[in-house]
Computed example of a mutant assay.
Amino acid sequence: MVGYLARRAGSMILVLLGVSVLVFLIMQLVPGDPVRTMLGPTATAESIAAVRADLGLDQPLVQQYVSYLGGLVQGDLNTSLTMAQPVAEIVFPKLGNTIILAAGALVICLVIGVPLGVLAATRQYSLFDRGAMFLSLAGASVPVYWAALVVISVFALELGWLPTSGMYDVREPGGLGDLLRHLVLPAATAAVVPTAVIARLTRSVMVEALQQDHIRMLRANGVPERQIVWKHALRNALPPIVNIVGLQVGYLLGGVIFIEVVFSWPGLGGQLYTSITSNDMPIIQAGVLFIALVFVVVNLIADIVVALLDPRTREAVG
């Protein structure tokens, strides 16, 4: 297991290195001059050249990347071109807010998606099964922005149950209760597609698990069906479920960008949207790198959990 973890950590570093190269090169291809954007339309050619030299943007591309990578290793994420603040001071609080939103959506995915898939598998080809899979197929096909507009229209504008923007009430910011009230709608909207995917996969692997020989033997020995389903069959189906949940975390981190913009959630996605429109390259680079970091860490954790759950995987990884 130690060797497996070392290999996975090495591959994680290579993935992040590749992401840093890709993001750096893409930023060089973005039209427009970030220095001119930072100084404004009245900037002179001399002032633009001076700022470019100060930021190292007049150096060869390879040297710029080496300097950028060296700064990353030392924890230096450069300075925002539009806000004149260290990128770390801007990105870290926003990343925390995005993780809160993604975690809330993930809880909804697990609480609804896994039980729905299990119950559909135990009632294979029944009306409940067909209805659940139809709803999951519809959920997987729903555009995120459309779902956001629907929930805002119904639960905020028509019923007036929940707020539509921010993390806390601007007039009387509260504690955890206020945060949860503001979290419900964006988290539920972000969870629609991943919940549908998790439900469909859970149903598929549970159908296969319930047809195993040892499950038939348990039934023949009179073990209660509830215990067979939730204790024995679900345990065998957990490894692929854990894998798909890890992949859906990556979807959530990408999908919440639209959610944060629509619901004015002060997270990294909303900040990335603002930075893209203003061509603030240091924040864009840092934001993409942090999303990639969270994604690979979550999938590393998922792989470890799968190895602990499945003896065959533990033997394969050593």
Rank of each mutant, 00 (worst) to 15 (best):
D303S: 04
Q59H: 11
L69S: 04
L29Q: 13
L72E: 10
G174A: 10
N279S: 11
R235T: 03
D303F: 04
A187P: 14
F290N: 15
L22K: 05
L272D: 07
F24V: 03
L159P: 06
N236P: 09
S136L: 03
N97G: 07
G174I: 09
L95C: 10
L29V: 12
P163R: 03
G270Y: 14
V294R: 10
A9V: 09
L218G: 05
I291R: 02
L185C: 06
A199G: 02
P93D: 12
F155W: 09
Y125P: 00
N221E: 14
S136C: 12
G139T: 02
L17G: 08
L159F: 15
L180P: 06
S278Y: 04
G104E: 05
E315K: 12
A105K: 08
A43S: 14
I284L: 11
G166M: 05
A220G: 01
G3D: 02
L308S: 04
H214S: 10
W146T: 06
V114E: 01
S20L: 10
R8C: 05
V118E: 11
I291S: 02
H182A: 11
A237E: 00
G139P: 05
S126K: 08
A188K: 03
V51M: 11
F295M: 07
G71L: 03
L293W: 10
G318S: 11
L61E: 08
R123N: 14
A148R: 10
D169Y: 04
V107L: 15
G18T: 12
N97L: 13
R203F: 01
V111D: 01
A187W: 15
V51C: 02
I284D: 09
E315R: 14
M167K: 06
M1E: 12
G287S: 07
I244Y: 00
T98Q: 09
L69T: 10
Q227L: 14
P31E: 09
D169H: 05
V19I: 11
F155Y: 03
S67F: 05
E315A: 15
A156V: 09
P240Y: 02
C109F: 09
A190W: 05
L116W: 08
E208W: 13
N97C: 07
A6H: 08
G117Q: 02
I291T: 08
P266A: 13
V296Y: 07
L5T: 04
G10M: 02
M27R: 04
I100Q: 15
L61R: 13
V107R: 14
L185D: 04
V114L: 01
